[in-house]
Every structure is written in C-alpha cells, then in structure tokens.
C-alpha cells in the first residue's frame, strides 16, 4: 500500500485536507504535517519526517503479507517543497521510498487518496492520479 502525507504551511490546512481526503477516499489514510515547530505558519522537517514514517509504518502493518510501497507527499508552496525533500533525504537512508506529486494540494490529495486505496496502486500510479488534478475544470 502507498502512504500519503500532506505538507502545508498551516497545520489547519493540512488537517482539513487530510479530513477531506479521508472522506472522499474511504480507507485511504492521509497523515497531515502542517505548520512550523512553534505552531505557527511554516513547515517543520522533523514533523514531516515523523509523518512519512507514521504513514509508512501504518502500511507495513496493514500489509503483513506484502511490502509497503512507500509514501507519496503533496506540498503547498515555497519552503514546504524544500522541507519535504529534506525529510525525504533523511528517511530514504532507512529504505523508505518517497515520491512527490506536483499537484494542487486539496484536489491532488483527494485524487491520491482514492487511488491509494486501489489494491494495484503504486507510487507512480498515485503520483500520476494526483497530478491529474492539475487539469481540473470546475466550471465547465
């Protein structure tokens, strides 16, 4: 199974996106990692790292039979990108594969959560589905 982490400058945004995606994506679980270390607006590499590990571990447990497939991370903007990439560097040392979806964070996370519940989901398929959200037309 593929894990999902959403990284935003606001902790509330990350939690809200995770809630939205959980509702739309059913069992797909999204771990939020928003805000800076002091609870303000920003990003926190340690929190992102912990979220990736949590998401990965949850899938290792769920997939007692098979390997966990790694974690797809969605980010909002600016330093979220760098912080998430740095956290990925840290966890990859421990063999956790991380992929980034270059997508609008709300729509992309919802799409990713839906795809991640598919038994055939891979890191690539989840990234592709999330990035498809860039093509959304909401008004015709």
């Amino acid at each position: 199974m593929v894990g999902l982490v959403v990284v935003t400058h606001s902790a509330k945004v990350a939690e809200g996106v995770a809630d939205t995606a959980a509702q739309m994506g059913g069992e797909g679980r999204v771990v939020p990692a928003g805000g800076d270390p002091d609870g303000g607006l920003g990003t926190d590499v340690d929190r992102i790292e912990a979220a990736i590990r949590e998401s990965y571990e949850a899938n290792v447990d769920a997939d007692a039979e098979s390997e966990a497939d790694g974690v797809v991370v969605l980010v909002d903007l600016g330093s979220a990108v760098m912080s998430a990439e740095t956290a990925a560097d840290v966890v990859e040392v421990d063999g956790i594969e991380v992929a980034f979806a270059d997508a609008p964070v709300v729509e992309g996370t919802v799409e990713a959560a839906v795809e991640a519940t598919s038994p055939k989901a891979t890191l690539d398929s989840v990234v592709e589905r999330a990035e498809g959200a860039r093509e959304y037309r909401k008004f015709g």
Binding site: D44, G78, S79, M82, E85
Partner: peptide, 19 residues
C-alpha cells in the same frame, strides 16, 4: 539545523551539511 531552523534556511544549511 534542519530541526531548529524554520523556513528555507534549515533545509538549505542543514540538508547540505548533512549530505
């Protein structure tokens, strides 16, 4: 540095030193 420095400087300084 990665843990303590918010914004872009933490990943830039800390990530580069660590790597």
């Amino acid at each position: 540095l990665i843990s303590e420095v918010g914004g872009a400087s933490g990943p830039l300084y800390g990530g580069s030193i660590m790597s």
